[in-house]
Amino acid sequence: MSTLKPVLSRTFQLILVLWAVVTILFLMFRLMPGNPLAAYIDPTFTLEQQEALIRQFGLDESLLRQYFTYLGNLLQGELGYSFRYRTPVAERIWLLLPNTLILTFSSLIVAYIFGILAGAWLAWRRASRAEAFALPIVLATRAMPEFWLGMVLLAIFSFSLGIFPAGGTRSAGTEYESLWSLYTSADFLSHLALPMLTLAIYSQGLPLLLMRSNMLDVMKEDFVTMAKVKGLSPYTIVIKHGARNALLPVMTSFAISVGYQLQGNVVVESVFSWPGLGRELVSAVSASDYPLAQGAFLMIAVVVILMNLIADLLYTFLDPRISHA
């Protein structure tokens, strides 16, 4: 299989990058000012708890030994105990990850559907008044601070108009039997609406601009001209040949956007009190809950790196010039 090799070499590269990021994370939290034990131990822990953690993370040993212990623990999914919640960090992270992923993917899917259609349309109407009007607006949406957009939407749709709730994932006092029934409830979706819209408005610019400029390029290709010479229908020419080819790099950018979005989530989750990884990271850092902060950072980094890999592989699989080499 000719496609196996790039997959393997990229995967190997991913492992290297992951290792490097994990090492940076270790150094970041170990070299910070203050007590070296502070990365895992809170003074309010009981003595037995403290001793157990010192043993588990080798905190009384040399930095190098600690590093290997840290790597070993990571491989077993062992991230320590949250100072504030007194629960394993991993447990907390797994609880929050779905919320972050739901927010990220729903907003990006909306952003991409809109961006692709609008981008293709703007390419079609190039040099028109619609374009002169739309392009600066699109550029301006990319220049907005996401959290500010969130604040504005929150003020208008929640506080002024009262259409959507102000934050969180569910109304006070509601209980659901399972996560699934929570995620599919109208209550959850109405809580999702504003943060999702915020991130979608912010993210649509990239697919829109990419799609537009790709379409403009593709429509000048020989095969598009030949499709016209063949007398094919405008739909076939614009959609099947034009858009299909222009879409390729846009699809790849989706995976990269997931990575970027995850980072941007940090602020938007904070504005909407959305219980996700980003907000958790911020509150953990503020509260000096270092194990939890490390865990959240690590999880975000893993998704970012994974998405970079997927972007590469997507390209490999979507482009027959590479997949059928």
Partner: peptide, 8 residues
């Protein structure tokens, strides 16, 4: 260049 690269 006159054949679309993404279709058989």
């Amino acid at each position: 260049n006159s054949l679309d690269p993404v279709y058989r």
